[in-house]
């Protein structure tokens, strides 16, 4: 069995309260199961409850052994780690993989900074778990047991990876936080900053990277995609913030033959009522035009690939 459970789907900051009960207020955390194997994507605030579940259920079968893939090191994607109970339990084995922006920094330092006395009462050195950190780039990895993962750089204001997990012919793909690549150089010769070489190279680079992204999504059984904004919001004031619109994600998923699209990384200001309304709006919009199934990611829900 190849499954995905959502433990956190909120963007930017946890949003507890009566308006976020249905879709959840925890930041990014996904649990992926490939038969016995446990893979976690991101350590946002949702990882706390996943940890509690592992302590209730999995620990009975033996020590926790998991790979954690971090999409990027922005705070909402790592903030839950100090409250992930298995890190305090001797015998736990964690392999944390993720991209870092400069070679001078290391992933363990970025993560470990949260576990220092100025932020938290326990230091990284005092944890019970055995934790290995691995900085990763664009690559393909064999995780054993028939599970593989391919990574792809996304477009976010910091290095950020998308993950494509494959198991027994099925695929689960994550593509957040990201917005479509775009040419950031002026293309109008009348612009005082116009440079013909940069304009041409920029066009080509953006086009090629966007094509690579589409190839990365192709045929996915489940695609978890950043949809923090509507197209109108995106164009009005969010270009360059590193998040996608619903319209882009739906189009990209449809064009690449994705089977199920989970709309993810909900804007912290979006209430349950608004998300529900948007969900119905986009479902209606594609009805009868595509085989694609789409829905808003909901905290606590499990999907089988």
């Amino acid at each position: 069995m190849f499954s995905l459970t959502i433990w956190g789907d909120r963007g930017s900051m946890p949003t507890p309260g009566p308006d976020t009960v249905l879709f959840g207020g925890n930041t990014s955390c996904l649990e992926i199961r490939a038969n016995g194997r446990l893979v976690i994507v991101d350590a946002g605030s949702g990882i706390r409850q996943l940890g509690d579940k592992l302590m209730r259920e999995d620990i009975k079968k033996g020590p926790i052994d998991a790979d954690i893939f971090v999409t990027h090191t922005h705070w909402d994607h790592i903030m839950g780690f100090p409250m992930f109970t298995p890190i305090y339990v001797p015998g736990t084995k964690l392999r944390i993989h993720g991209p870092i922006t400069y070679e001078e920094d290391t992933l363990d330092k970025i993560f470990g900074a949260q576990l220092s006395y100025r932020y938290w009462p326990v230091r990284q050195e005092e944890l019970g778990a055995k934790i290995e950190y691995e900085q990763i780039k664009e690559t393909t990895m064999d995780l054993g047991g028939g599970l593989t993962v391919q990574t792809k750089y996304l477009n976010h204001p910091i290095l950020c990876l998308g993950y494509r997990f494959e198991f027994e012919g099925k695929s689960i793909v994550t593509a957040y936080d990201t917005e479509p690549f775009r040419n950031v150089f002026p293309t109008d010769p009348a612009d005082p900053q116009y440079d013909a070489d940069a304009a041409r190279e920029g066009e080509e680079a953006a086009r090629e990277e966007n094509e690579k992204l589409l190839r990365f999504y192709r045929g996915a059984d489940i695609l978890v995609h950043d949809t923090q904004y509507t197209a109108k919001e995106y164009v009005a004031s969010k270009v360059g913030w590193g998040h996608s619109s619903f319209e882009y994600a739906v189009n990209a998923a449809h064009r690449t033959g994705v089977k199920r699209l989970l709309l993810f990384h909900h804007d912290p200001n979006r209430s349950d009522a608004e998300l529900q309304e948007l969900e119905i709006f986009y479902q209606e919009r594609v009805r009868g035009k595509t085989a694609l199934e789409l829905e808003m990611a909901r905290e606590g829900r499990t999907y089988i690939a």
Partner: peptide, 16 residues
């Protein structure tokens, strides 16, 4: 090409 690097890695990464 630097233009390509800026688009692929993002302006913040290159700036930093």
């Amino acid at each position: 090409s630097l233009a390509r690097a800026i688009i692929m890695l993002g302006i913040n990464t290159v700036k930093n």
